[in-house]
């Protein structure tokens, strides 16, 4: 029998745990935006060594599962004598992983702009700095917003993986709750509801951004 009471009771601890899910994915995307911008800049730079570094960075982070990256960092840090809270290690790992996807999103948005727009700016004597800040970036950023929201949704889901390093986010909290109540089905349905609610909100934001852009 489905226990409605257990289902409803699960929301208390799971919603408490949701703050960690939001914190990890929110800080993760923020860090990913910063590092992703640097990687994208390196990728588009005139220096072959930087370009190669960025390409390797992106293909490593996209080619290795986040779960493996988290475990690597978790076991590597003590070995090299770095002692940071699991939460910090998790956010940094998620952020670095996100940076690979973010840099590709930005590279794509920049490449999507017709070359003639920069040429017209060059032709009237604008400097490279002005061309980036006035012509390319404003358009690339707004072009990339829907894809970035999508990336954030993926991060919210991927943050469930940090449960392996002991952080009490939604998934880990559900496992604990399932173990104490012996009612895994009710608990996991509640967890699914919370993930879904978060991501539906984000998707709605994404649609608003996309719509605003289409005008």
């Amino acid at each position: 029998m489905f226990s409605v009471a257990t289902f409803i009771d699960s929301f208390g601890p799971l919603l408490y745990a949701a703050r960690y899910t939001l914190l990890i994915s929110g800080l993760g995307i923020a860090l990913g935006l910063v590092i992703g911008a640097l990687i994208c800049a390196a990728r588009l730079s005139p220096f072959p060594a930087l370009r190669r570094f960025a390409a390797v960075w992106v293909s490593f982070l996209r080619g290795v599962p986040l779960l493996v990256q988290l475990l690597l960092v978790y076991y590597l840090l003590p070995v090299i004598g770095i002692d940071v809270p699991a939460m910090v290690a998790a956010v940094v790992t998620v952020g670095i992983c996100a940076s690979a996807y973010v840099s590709e999103i930005w590279r794509g948005a920049i490449a999507a702009l017709p070359r003639g727009q920069s040429e017209a700016a060059v032709a009237i004597g604008m400097s490279p700095g002005d061309i980036w800040t006035r012509i390319i970036l404003p358009q690339a950023v707004s072009l990339s917003l829907p894809a970035l929201v999508n990336e954030l949704i993926l991060l919210v889901k991927a943050s469930s993986l940090v449960s392996v390093v002991g952080i009490m986010e939604i998934t880990r909290a559900s496992q604990a709750q399932a173990a104490t109540t012996y009612r895994p089905l009710e608990v996991y349905i509640a967890a699914a509801c919370i993930y879904l609610a978060i991501n539906l909100c984000l998707a709605a934001v994404g649609r608003v951004l996309e719509h605003r852009m289409a005008v």
Binding site: Q117, I124, G125, S127
Partner: peptide, 23 residues
């Protein structure tokens, strides 16, 4: 680059595809 930009200031160019800035 600076000298080139100075020279380009007094040369206008119009392209087949207009190349206006849409934003």
């Amino acid at each position: 680059g600076r000298d080139l930009r100075t020279m380009r200031r007094s040369i206008g160019m119009v392209f087949q595809q207009f190349n206006l800035w849409p934003h």
